[in-house]
Amino acid sequence: MAEVVLYTDYFGLSERPFTLVPDPSLIYWSVQHKRAYSVLQYGLLSRAPVTLVSGEIGAGKTTLVQAVLREMDADLTIGLISNAQGGRGELLRWILNAFGVDTDDLPNEYVALFQRFQDFLLEQYTTGRRVVLIIDEAQNLSAEGLEEVRMLTNINSNKDELIQLVLVGQPELRDIIRGPNMRQLAQRISASYHLDRLDRDGVGAYIAHRLRAVGGTGQEFAPDACDMIYDHTAGIPRLVNQLCDFSMLYAWNDEEKQITAPTVAAVLADGVFFGDTEMEPAP
């Protein structure tokens, strides 16, 4: 038993199906994920100034964005920033760094940074490339930061947009953008979608899909185990992954080939799962 790498060999899997690292190859295409994918793809292909993807923590937003980008044309220049903070100018330096634009020779002065960024956009445009800036966890930006980002979409060449923004964040991001002082940003959003939590049936289908994707049968979790996992994760995929991962570990340790409700209960009783069990489940 010591030769087994965790539980993967025991269950005949090629890899762990429930890791927390975003993996587009394991994405579960629920109805809402398919719709979100189409909206995001539409936003990029139609050159929408701003595309918004929101959802609960762990709903699969980042994984979805990665899946879309893998299928896009090679003429995209993509910059990604996450949890960016700071005042005027500091955010712009974050953005420049995301695109690999050197700013070491520039003072922390907004005009100089803005000019460097504008020159970068024009250079990309003349070579036929489209620039896409993805801001993950965008709800952490201040109102000033969001306005600074919005102003970047004012840089254009005739009718062509030189930069497209993809804002990814938690549900409060939508509330912030709907505020009276964010009207100009809201008017620039041409495509948006909100990813909700999975319902009870969706959790069972999600678990089976992840297992089959790595060589399993999809039947490794009994229906009563799936129900208990739903009850204690509120249908949030990231929490489902955590609880499933520990449950498979416990089943391997107890030499059980199927995870049942008592196995999940043992994980919960031992306190190794730190999910937010007080959240209301999805209907």
Rank of each mutant, 00 (worst) to 15 (best):
F11T: 04
F11M: 09
P22S: 10
P22H: 08
S30H: 03
V31L: 09
Q32N: 09
K34E: 15
A36I: 05
A48E: 10
P49F: 01
S54F: 04
A59S: 15
G60Y: 04
K61Y: 06
Q66L: 12
M72G: 01
D73G: 14
A74N: 09
A74F: 07
N83G: 10
Q85H: 10
R93C: 01
W94L: 02
W94R: 06
L96P: 02
L106N: 04
P107S: 09
Y110F: 15
A112P: 00
L113N: 02
Q115E: 13
F117Y: 12
F117T: 01
D119N: 11
D119A: 14
L121T: 08
L122N: 12
R130P: 01
I134Y: 08
A138S: 06
Q139A: 04
S142D: 07
A143P: 04
G145L: 03
L152K: 02
I155G: 00
N156F: 14
S157P: 02
K159W: 11
D160H: 15
Q164L: 07
L167G: 01
L167A: 06
L167R: 02
L167D: 01
V168C: 05
V168E: 04
R183L: 14
A213L: 05
T217Y: 10
E220T: 11
E220S: 08
P223K: 12
A225E: 02
I229K: 04
Y230L: 05
H232V: 03
A234L: 08
P237F: 02
F246W: 13
S247Y: 09
E256Q: 15
I259S: 01
T260H: 08
T263R: 06
V264N: 01
L268T: 07
T277F: 10
E278H: 15
